[in-house]
Design a protein around this nucleic acid. Structure first.
Length: 469
RNA sequence: GCCGGGGUGACAGAGCGGCUAAUGUGACCGACUGCAGAUCGGUUUCCUGGGGGUUCGACUCCCUCCCCCGGCACCA
């Protein structure tokens, strides 16, 4: 099935047709490592991780590029407040980011491109823009993009220049010729890190790095650009203006995708509001896969309200799926060749991947895809209850693996040491002996004690199963 | 003010010009169980922000109003 993507540029869903055959170039705005990675980052990067995984699943040869803004105002502020070097701040927070991403199974990025590694491209691009009359050097030797020279300004965001309120949020710099103009190169102030340029020492503006990076890797046009909705204006608008003015090629990006924000009780999550959730804090209370499940349990474009209650609910929901996957793994090893449940199971197995594909092809609707998975899980459980055969269960296991690879779920295995596992097996068999003697006081004591340690025992028709929390 | 997204059951949250309006959580009942858990079956009084319109038929399309969220020039 063809993929349909909601393109912010046209404000409708469009059939996805890459520029070059089945090769897809995809860029997502990365973060500025100047503070802890928070749940908002997690939502964005999990969402685009799923996008990349699904594209690859569909056979697209996908190159996923993400930038890292390693020089920017907030990093300089952090330097001033902590006394640490800019690159030290960046490497510390970026390491934390990578760690978080790995835990959340965000594994699909091919290259992380650091802005400061692209100084030559940045400078070359700014020079080109000046040469073509799209940029000007201000009296302090900063360089600004002249938005009045770009006819397409406002195309992405649907904004009319005259309708905007200059200074609604950020004060307008007085050096600009027009409030809409944005900085390409920022002249150095005393004590700030700086790079050499034809205009003197300074650093790149925020928007220019992305186009410098993508033009080097992808050329003047590429397929997909992702980011959170808050970046749509002015950041992405600025990218288009720079790139198209510089290369003369339009459209710069074929499909623009924007993901919804993480809210906390209806408010934007923000450090100053005191509702800030670093991912590491969430990870102390919830398993990584539960967090990932929680984040893809909504369509990526919508916002998501973050609260411990909703995460608890997500855990219960995810446990249901995970339980089924586990049961299948256990059953397929010891099931007879066939069983009375096979018929229904095979019918469902034949259909589920098609339904999953349809859901995901509709603008990466992970919510719908999970609903398909829940439906399937019910059929699987039922089939196992009435007795499913090995062949049919092997097929089910393959289905789950396929879906797991796309969604990045069901990867974590909690496995203990040989010693712990051995002790657990011993306790389980002691408890079984007690149960056979109808000594339920003893058997319940073992079960309760293990429960207190986070190990749940379940008596099933085919014996006892234990699992850790 | 302007631009964009959204308002669906107790809660979270999909979908679609007509099909029981998914799915999950919670609650209740039943089956299974020594009990529990997991699982299965059933129930949770027909829930689409208000008002118009188009249509044989609207949650879905159009208009209008109200409300929420984001952006408005250095936020994922």
């Amino acid at each position: 099935m063809a993929i349909r993507i909601y393109n912010s540029l046209s404000r409708k869903k469009e059939e996805f047709v890459p520029l070059h055959g089945n090769r897809v170039s995809m860029f997502v705005c990365g973060l500025t490592p100047q503070d802890q990675t928070h749940m908002g980052h997690a939502k964005t990067y999990v969402a685009f991780d799923v996008v990349a995984r699904f594209l690859r699943h569909k056979g697209y040869h996908t190159f996923y590029l993400q930038n890292v803004t390693d020089i920017e105002d907030r990093i300089i502020q952090k330097m001033k407040s902590t006394g640490r070097a800019w690159n030290e701040i960046v490497s510390g927070y970026f390491a934390e980011y990578l760690e978080v991403m790995e835990k959340l199974h965000c594994t699909s990025v091919d290259v992380y491109a650091f802005a400061t590694d692209y100084m030559d491209e940045i400078i070359e691009q700014i020079q080109g823009l000046i040469r073509k009359g799209h940029a000007y050097v201000a009296e302090d030797r900063s360089v600004y993009f002249d938005t009045t020279t770009f006819a397409g300004w406002g195309r992405l965001s649907g904004q009319k220049v005259e309708e905007l309120r200059p200074g609604a949020r950020v004060e307008v710099e007085e050096r600009k010729r027009h409030p809409a103009d944005f900085v390409l190169w920022r002249a150095q102030k005393p004590g700030e890190p700086a790079w050499d340029s034809p205009w003197g020492k300074g650093r790149p503006g925020w928007h220019i790095e992305d186009t410098a990076i993508t033009i080097r890797h992808f050329g003047p046009q590429y397929d997909l650009h992702g980011g959170a909705t808050e970046l749509l204006f002015p950041h992405h608008e600025a990218e288009i203006a720079q790139a198209e003015s510089y290369t003369g090629t339009s459209p710069f990006v074929k499909y623009w995708m924007h993901g919804g924000m993480v809210m906390v009780r209806g408010e934007e999550m923000h450090k100053s509001l005191g509702n800030f959730w670093p991912v590491t804090a969430a990870l102390q209370r919830y398993e990584p896969e539960v967090i990932r499940f929680f984040l893809i349990n909504v369509q990526y474009r919508g916002p998501i309200d973050f609260s411990p209650e909703l995460l608890d609910e997500a855990k219960r929901a995810y446990d249901r799926l995970r339980e089924t996957v586990r049961t299948v793994e256990a059953e397929r090893r010891r099931a007879p060749e066939s069983g009375p449940g096979d018929r229904d199971l095979k019918v469902a197995s034949a259909k589920v991947l098609t339904d999953f594909d349809a859901a995901m092809s509709d603008d990466f609707n992970t919510r719908e895809a999970l609903a398909v998975l829940f439906d399937y899980a019910r059929v699987v459980n039922k089939a196992i209850e009435v007795g499913a055969g090995r062949t049919a269960l092997e097929e089910t296991a393959r289905v789950f693996q396929t879906i797991a690879r796309v969604l990045g779920l069901f990867e974590d295995r909690s496995e203990g040491s040989t010693l712990v596992n051995g002790l657990l097996d011993l306790l389980v068999s002691l408890r079984e002996d007690a149960r056979k003697r109808k000594d339920f006081a003893a058997s319940d004591r073992i079960r309760d004690a293990l429960a207190a340690l986070g190990v749940t025992l379940e008596d099933t028709r085919d014996g006892v199963r234990w699992k850790r929390k």
